[in-house]
Nucleic acid binder design. Structure first.
Lengths: 128, 128
DNA sequence: GAGCAACTTCTACGTCACGTAGAAGTATGA
DNA sequence: TCATACTTCTACGTGACGTAGAAGTTGCTC
């Protein structure tokens, strides 16, 4: 699985954000509005895209297994297959698995984790 | 930073494996031999590449900051900027940082870690 | 039940990353 | 100084991705 393009990522973000399945048009509108207010993270600034563009992206995401569509309803409804957290965790495992010396990688990884994250990890790992 | 192509990855693997800085020709030869004996992992089977091909790849890797070259010596010598473990750990952090809900991601991540890895992590996190 | 409006599918083009390498330039030992 | 080895420059094919028009399908409405 490769890294998503910018638009693909933006669409996934929207799908992950909304709990409801969305239609292509809804997404198109959301993309148009999103001046990315709160987190000012760079990226697309309220792109005004053609619906077909959004559809194409959705199809590609579907082909990659990231998105699922309800074909029954007429305006097809799209939604992310897995949550953003799941997807991201999976990616992390993929990256981790790409190196033969996993332990070494984990050591480096833990080495540069914030205190809060370290605490979170300790809790998650529990004892045993 | 994006994911490397197949050849780029193969070259990085060689650079990470050897502790010495290598020349383009050395790498070319190694790539030609490498039938990937032990770990049979798919990929290139002893590709017989032109040296210029290797050089191009090395230049691109250099541009990406993954490889460093000694320009002093005549047959330039190349080596990885950081160890594979460092690089991989960095990538993991990058992935982790790509999601807003890091804690959730970590939870999922830990959830699907092997027992051994969990043990390693506990040790690494130590007490405190 | 015919037509319009909305939606989807098909096809396509430009760009960029990457695999691949030839041609030309440069240094270095004999 | 000349051949040899190495590097740089330039380039082409392919595939992913952003982008969207044209054509097809469906469903509501009069």
């Amino acid at each position: 699985m490769a890294s998503l393009g910018e638009l693909e990522r933006a669409v996934m973000d929207l799908l992950w954000a909304g709990q409801e399945a969305a239609t292509a048009n809804t997404l198109r509108d959301l993309l148009a509005q999103s001046t990315r207010p709160q987190d000012g993270s760079a990226g697309h600034e309220g792109k005004d895209l053609a619906v077909t563009t959004v559809l194409t992206v959705l199809s590609r995401l579907e082909r990659k297994g990231l998105v699922e569509r309800e074909r029954g309803t007429r305006p097809h409804r799209y939604q992310a297959v897995s949550s953003r957290a799941d997807h991201t965790a999976e990616l992390m495992h993929e990256v981790l698995g790409s190196a033969p010396d996993r332990e070494a990688v984990l050591a480096r990884f833990i080495g540069s984790v914030t205190d809060n994250e370290a605490e979170t990890l300790r809790k998650l790992l529990g004892r045993s």
